[in-house]
Simulated scan of single mutants.
Amino acid sequence: MRANELSNEDISLLEVYIFFTRQIKTILMIFFVACAVGIAYSTTRPTLYMSVSNATIGKSISLDSNTLGLLESPEEIAYNYSSIATITPIKNTNIVKVSSTTEDRKQSIENVKSTIEKITKNQKEIYQSQENKFIKYLEILKITDAVNARTLDILQIASKSSATHSSEMVTTELPYSGKIKQNLLLTAFIAALVALTTGGLKELCRRGSEKKQLHN
């Protein structure tokens, strides 16, 4: 039993060796042609510009300053303001990353700047609406001077924490679309796969032809 297994392994290795000795020229030719096409494609990709800035989301008004909620959740911001820029919430924070990648450097910067301005403007309107409702609610109640003082403190804290602001924008140049390494690795993999497949198909055709000749 063991001898048969060893014999089968020897036959398999011999078949692999014969396959490569017969088809090595085809495999190498297809591999280099496919690599040349992939390299030509990868090195002619345009230069891109990626602009990035982090926006800190403001907090809403709350009677308890220790449990202030956000004016909008990071997920809501990602959904509402992603028309011209990519918005990525940073996990477990009130910060979102706003980015834009285009072939035009100025357009990339403008996309991020415009998106942050839109977020800031809308959140300011949300806060002002909350503040107006809060004040109207308090006017309905008969409150003491002490509560008045507490209310002013709440509004003061809220006005500071509700301001949505952003970090300095950074723009990075990405030669070859920023994916030259990935494209070259993918090219090598695909070229090898195509070359081996072509060599295998050619070998199958050769063997099929030999069998027909034997039968004839």
Rank of each mutant, 00 (worst) to 15 (best):
K133C: 12
I154V: 05
K160D: 03
N8Y: 10
R2P: 07
K121P: 01
S62R: 06
N183H: 05
I39M: 09
N122W: 09
I24T: 08
T26M: 11
Q213P: 06
I157K: 09
L13D: 03
I39L: 10
L174T: 02
C35R: 06
R206D: 02
E210S: 09
I119E: 04
T115D: 06
F20D: 03
L14V: 08
N4A: 13
S82H: 09
I109Q: 11
S62D: 06
L193M: 12
I95H: 00
N216M: 12
A149H: 13
T197V: 04
S129W: 06
L184M: 07
I30M: 09
L152T: 08
N216D: 11
S99C: 08
S161K: 03
D104E: 11
E5F: 12
T164M: 04
M29D: 01
T198Y: 11
T198W: 10
N148F: 04
N148T: 02
H165Q: 07
I180R: 02
K25N: 06
S60N: 12
M169P: 10
F134K: 06
L28P: 06
K133F: 14
K212V: 15
L28V: 14
V112M: 15
N183R: 08
F20N: 11
S162Y: 04
L14D: 01
V37D: 02
H215C: 14
T102S: 08
A34M: 14
Y79R: 15
L152S: 12
S161L: 09
D104M: 12
Y137M: 14
R45T: 03
K106N: 15
L155S: 02
L214E: 13
H165W: 08
R207T: 03
T56A: 00
K179G: 02
L70T: 00
T43S: 00
I126D: 14
E131V: 11
I61D: 01
T47G: 01
R22P: 00
N132P: 00
